[in-house]
Design a protein around this nucleic acid. Structure first.
Lengths: 241, 241
DNA sequence: CTGTTTACTGACTGAACAGTCAGTACTAGT
DNA sequence: ACTAGTACTGACTGTTCAGTCAGTAAACAG
């Protein structure tokens, strides 16, 4: 019954230890990413990851102290560069902020076209962040704390220089980022795609166009302040969203 | 050791069965909501919920066949009315869509002010939806499928009647909803509040102002089409978001 | 006072999995 | 050939819970 065939070298894959062990962490992460995307973090067992990386469970723990560390490492590995790049672009930009946004959006659009997994990874993060405070913090320090302030700063400079309307930069930043988030959530989590596919391109164009006009310092912006968002009416709406 | 004190009526709470059993489901849901908000769905055990509702574990299963059904019932209980109301408002509106949005935003702002848990429940949903396809579907059919199409329709009518610019209504809808989502995610999940508190009011005002100008049919909307979101540059950005 | 029904109890079961560790297999140095 | 060391294995452990079910106890009917 036991498979103790005395010492006999495996032919399969030409002995594990031949392959350079430095590559192991990346191999494990690759396997983990694929599985996490397919089934989510919680439904993926370390055993499965090990199998997919052609290893045993124990070996995974040789490289990563615990399961959540896989997630953290994945985010670290994938996210750093992108965030730094975006932040740098926003920070270095001079002149009308809308140009910077246009450029950034264009790059995002490209990425979305090239890489079908583009939207999958943020989805993964959205999935797992709630259950893993550690991941939330990693993502915050590694991405949000870099990009958001850069964006807010860009907008603030734009206001100061008179390129765009006088709006709260912090809130405006949320209006810039929001539609993409919504698109992601609706399509990836709730399966609500617009009739004809995901169409990042289309979203980005609409969003850009809206911002372009919305941020402009034209005369008709006087239409605001008509309603200070506080009319005491119809308050008998049930709770929750 | 055993507490078999022969038959003697409990004084505590005047015997469970005296309290009307029809109220039990709601009592259980109240307890569940509180715990879910405090610790999340997965970290809350059925035992805890039972205790909080002054019941035993088994009793919970008398009213709800399985744990996830608690979540589903919570969403159903809380969300139906609000969604119906919003959808009705959007559907019935005649004239410039921006007025309808203003009204809706005003109501949301009120709610946010009155009820400190306002943002907590969407957060809960955001937390748990990824791990529970059933919840995702409930939320979709119960909320999104009602509100989103109504919003899209409103915008489409606005375009047709010439009240607002010619933008893809489906994508514009995402731009209307997005900022609020972003605000929620940033503050509730990543703990990234703007310097001075949550400020829904401020977000809604900014967002309204942006949309007001962004949707307007002014001349300067010619600024679009300068850049078709597709310049082949700087494509060496690492992946993932 | 004696069934019968209703509402509930809580010890128990079974399954899933993260993480461990004694042991194996190959490699390299001498 | 022998030894030391490195890379890995996978059976096992411990724990955590969702869900079950035999049993209790009050309430009610006749």
């Amino acid at each position: 019954m036991t498979k103790t065939e005395t010492s006999k070298p495996q032919n399969a894959a030409r002995s594990k230890s031949r392959r350079r062990p430095e590559e192991r962490p990346d191999e494990i992460l690759d396997a983990a990413l694929e599985l996490f995307l397919a089934q989510g973090f919680h439904r993926t067992t370390v055993e499965q990851i090990a199998r997919a990386a052609q290893l045993s469970k124990g070996a995974v723990y040789l490289y990563f102290p615990a399961k959540p560390d896989l997630l953290v490492a994945l985010v670290r590995r994938g996210v750093g560069g992108m965030a730094d790049h975006a932040a740098a672009l926003l920070r270095s930009h001079q002149g009308d902020p809308r140009q910077a946004l246009r450029k950034l959006f264009a790059q995002i659009g490209q990425r979305a076209q090239q890489n079908p997994n583009f939207a999958k990874v943020p989805r993964l993060i959205l999935h797992e962040v709630p259950t893993s405070p550690e991941l939330a913090e990693i993502y915050r320090t590694e991405v949000l704390d870099k990009v958001l302030p850069a964006l807010v700063d860009l907008l603030a400079r734009g206001v100061a220089a008179g390129h765009i309307r006088r709006l709260d930069p912090e809130m405006t930043a949320r209006c810039v980022v929001g539609p993409m988030l919504a698109h992601l959530l609706l399509s990836e989590i709730f399966g609500l795609q617009p009739a004809a596919g995901l169409q990042w391109q289309s979203l980005l164009e609409t969003q850009l166009s809206l911002l372009d006009a919305g941020l402009a310092r034209t005369a008709d912006a006087a239409a605001r302040h008509t309603n200070p968002v506080n009319d005491p009416e119809l308050s008998h709406v049930p709770d929750l969203l």
